[in-house]
């Protein structure tokens, strides 16, 4: 006598749970890619070298400098001056919150607090 039937039931339950990502993705269709990211236009560049991974830190540093320390001096990149600001800086080149911010954040399920104060784009 052994407990084989019960054990097999338990094993199947665990295996179904463990393979959740596979059948979930297959069930949702293979729509696994984000909408294409907004690419820089010809001849333009970002104030950061690696904005995709590190933009949140720069924004945080700017927030601290401008809001908390009152240091509003503009930064200079390649001879061009920029405001240390989300609305007056980043969003001057990247026109819309929906295209520039939300696509990736929604895809990666990153929830932000920026928009609790800042306005994204017109009509927001």
């Amino acid at each position: 006598m052994n407990d084989k039937p019960k054990i097999i039931v338990g094993l199947v339950v665990v295996l179904v749970a463990a393979t959740f990502p596979f059948w979930y993705t297959l069930a949702k269709g293979r729509d696994v890619l984000p909408e294409d990211r907004e690419r820089p236009s010809e001849g333009s560049r970002c104030v950061m070298d690696d904005p995709v991974a590190n933009h949140m830190q720069v924004l945080n540093t700017w927030r601290d400098e401008v809001v908390r320390e009152g240091d509003t001096e503009q930064i200079k990149v390649d001879g061009k001056k920029y405001h240390k600001s989300l609305t007056d800086g980043c969003l001057q080149c990247h026109s819309s919150r929906e295209d520039h911010c939300d696509r990736c954040h929604e895809y990666a399920n990153v929830e932000l607090t920026c928009w609790e104060c800042h306005l994204g784009s017109k009509g927001d």
């Binding site: 990502p21 596979f22 993705t25 890619l33 990736c104």
Partner: peptide
Amino acid sequence: TKTDIVSVKQVAVGLSGFSFD
């Protein structure tokens, strides 16, 4: 050291859905 999380997700969800980039 931060990563490009969107590319990571493309890799990861690609593994779940058997499509690679």
